[in-house]
Amino acid sequence: MENGPPPELPVGLTDPSHLSPAETLALIEAQRRVVARSLYVDPALILGAWGLAWLVGGGAGYLAADGWLAAGVPIWLAGVISGVLFAAATLVSFGEQARRGRGVAGPSRRVAAVYGWSWLLAFAGVFALNLALEQRGLPTHLVPLLWTGTSLLAVGLLYLAGGMLWGSRLQYGLGLWVLATGAGSVAAGFPGNFAVLSLAGGGGFLVAAAVARARDWHSERAA
């Protein structure tokens, strides 16, 4: 920095000594906000995508099982709807993580990656267990209860883990709620289990998404 500002500096980034302490502090805060916002994984987006998938997917399952609507939703259609919505929610979750973590490596990313793998492993376990039980002659009327119950159990436990990893009471609380929903879905019996999955499960996720969004607004305003 020989005599005067270097030529490359953008406007406003000229001689630093012209900044007062207050201006320097403002610069720090502004830059901090830009970086924090860029790195921030939006929980409301992810929770909202899952909430929608559960609400609509579980709802379709219920309508198909019950034939409650005069028109009725065929089983295969309910399967396709749930499949597409769950795939979309998975893409949203991984996409948001990847976008925010682009170009970042290190301990925090390793934790996030291991957590991501935990979801895959947990559901591999759920599938292996449930398919084995079906093969061993689990009575047909119990099969839907097994699937909603074990899936919700796995999701609940993983949210407890997420809450512990990131010190998030919202995630931990959601984990507890999903565990209760899992027990409730089995208690409700077939086809009520799908209604519980849809309304209590999906609804719980959507409430959590709304809480997360409200918190974000609050902290944006405070900043």
Partner: peptide
Amino acid sequence: VLPPGDQVT
């Protein structure tokens, strides 16, 4: 702003 130990490209 990055957690301690994290690297950025």
